[in-house]
Design a protein around this nucleic acid. Structure first.
Ligand SMILES: [Mn+2]
Ligand SMILES: [Mn+2]
Ligand SMILES: [Zn+2]
Ligand SMILES: [Zn+2]
Lengths: 134, 134
DNA sequence: TGTCTTCTTTGTAATGATTACAAATTTATA
DNA sequence: TATAAATTTGTAATCATTACAAAGAAGACA
């Protein structure tokens, strides 16, 4: 938890309880939760929490590069506390999001372009659903 | 235009005027237009056109694999008449969408997964905006 | 401590793309 | 032509996200 606080301070962000809680939550889940899920998960820890604060907080954290926004879902953003470069797979059956390693993305045609973000989104059926699901 | 009609027929889709027009429009632009843009562009050709029909049509075309939906834009889908595998770059300054060649995407960790779609989205500043924009 | 200022958090309303759906229109079939 | 089926349209509903002003908490200073 101290490291989370330090991460915020190092970026010049005041480590309010909400900010520390949201960042800590995202750093300790692989679920790539939605706003709704983050909100519900922290509600017991922070009973006065508002959904607007969750929106505000993830926007702030994303702006400072502390988390990533995963827009693989067309109608609901998901948030990722893992900012190492990796790909995302969405299962069309169970809707779970999986991380996978990206060794390299080999491209051309972008001479003189400045590339700031690289997102790789796959979709299909996950191994668990392939062999019968739950 | 005949080839567009045939494409629809080959998929078992009745080639109504709207369907042929939308598919033909998407096959002849590199702009990756939004629903709004498609609607406005075809309004002169089809004065009675409704936005709902544009939604219905692109959904149908996408379901049959005749076009691709590009969800690089968080709040508005874009549609692509080019179904060959390629990446998309979104310029944060001019908001234009650019195609680029993807030689290969080298990944691991997806053993026993069935992969149906692969999307590669980059963002940053395009070459034109880098050297001063318009 | 009390006052003033600034930052954070909250609740509510507005926005806007997408979806739902039934009526109207067109097209196919007998 | 009459009937059925498919397509198209207009309007209303949905719902994630954004805007915004009020409320609350924290910091500075005397
Ligand atoms: Mn991830
Ligand atoms: Mn394209
Ligand atoms: Zn699955
Ligand atoms: Zn540009």
């Amino acid at each position: 938890m101290q490291n989370i606080t330090d991460e915020l301070i190092n970026k010049g962000i005041k480590p309010s309880f909400i900010r520390v809680s949201v960042l800590n939550y995202l750093r300790n889940t692989i679920a790539h939760p939605t706003i709704e899920t983050i909100y519900n998960s922290l509600k017991t820890l922070i009973p006065t929490l508002s959904k607007t604060s969750v929106y505000n907080t993830v926007e702030l954290l994303a702006d400072f590069g502390l988390i990533n926004v995963v827009t693989i879902d067309k109608n609901e953003s998901r948030y990722d506390g893992d900012i190492k470069f990796h790909g995302h797979f969405k299962c069309e059956k169970c809707n779970n999001l999986y991380d996978f390693s990206l060794l390299d993305v080999n491209y051309s045609d972008l001479k003189n372009f400045i590339i700031n973000t690289k997102d790789v989104y796959f979709s299909g059926i996950c191994a668990n659903c392939v062999k019968g699901g739950v």
